[in-house]
């Protein structure tokens, strides 16, 4: 499995969400897409799953252009929270299972157990942390070769974050999957990443191996990111 963005441009009104972006992702790796709010992270993810299409350039999965149908093969966790309030946890899972052929119900049940969700509880009575967990269940239970997570930790307390990270590590199958995590909470995900890609207002301003950053430059991802953003801003002034 490979994902490729070639000279991808996307504009919302006059603003560039992405500007001539080239990116190549392959299986076996966990990628971090980092950048401030509004830097184009979500747009990039939506393009990989066929929810948004480029104004210029092309996005391909295994060499095939992404279409609306690509959503069937890509597990995508949105930053938004969209569940039917009157459904129970179990009904929500059953509903998602009915929408995606690659949904693995056994895996979903294991995840519900592991994340200590009550299957009988109604969505409307779930805490924010539990809604976050449920979202993760619906994304990770799919046997998809591509998993895209948009801000999977936002608004979750440290305990839930840790449980989330653990489920993620337990269920990711790096021999066949690509995992992309978009977030501005860089420190949280650093130990999870193989590679980090820094976006800054529509541009890719850096791409590095996390361990190379530490080994050869003696810096963490956050320090590296602050540095290149600083350089970029200095250059722009």
């Amino acid at each position: 499995m490979t994902i490729a963005l070639r000279q991808v441009t996307k504009k919302y009104g006059r603003e560039f969400a992405l500007k001539e972006v080239d990116l190549h992702l392959e299986k076996g790796k966990i990628y971090g897409l980092v950048g401030p709010n509004g830097s184009g992270k979500s747009t990039a993810l939506k393009m990989m799953t066929g929810l948004v299409f480029p104004d210029g350039g092309d996005v391909t999965l295994n060499g095939i252009n992404v279409t609306r149908k690509t959503t069937a093969d890509v597990a995508y966790l949105t930053e938004l929270d969209m569940f039917y309030e009157s459904f129970t946890v179990q009904e929500t899972v059953d509903f998602v299972a009915s929408q995606f052929a690659n949904f693995n119900k056994n895996k979903a049940n294991e995840l519900i157990n592991q994340l200590k969700l009550d299957p009988k509880k109604k969505v409307k009575s779930l805490s924010k942390g539990n809604r976050g967990r449920l979202k993760l269940v619906t994304a990770l239970a799919r046997d998809a070769e591509v998993i895209l997570l948009d801000e999977p930790f936002s608004g979750l307390d440290p305990m839930v974050r840790e449980a989330t990270v653990k489920s993620l590590l337990q269920y990711v199958q790096l021999d066949k999957q690509i995992l992309v995590i978009a977030t501005h909470e860089i420190n949280e995900i650093e130990p999870l990443l193989d590679q980090v890609i820094a976006l800054y207002y529509g541009d890719i301003i850096g791409k590095e191996d996390v361990e190379v950053l530490r080994e050869e430059h003696g810096t963490s991802v956050l320090e590296w990111f602050k540095n290149i953003v600083h350089q970029k801003e200095e250059g722009a002034l």
């Binding site: 790796k29 840790e162 653990k166 590590l169 337990q170 790096l174 130990p191």
Partner: peptide, 11 residues
């Protein structure tokens, strides 16, 4: 070990 430490399995 990856789950225990919260770290990428490749690491």
């Amino acid at each position: 070990m990856a789950v225990k430490m919260g770290v990428n399995p490749n690491t």
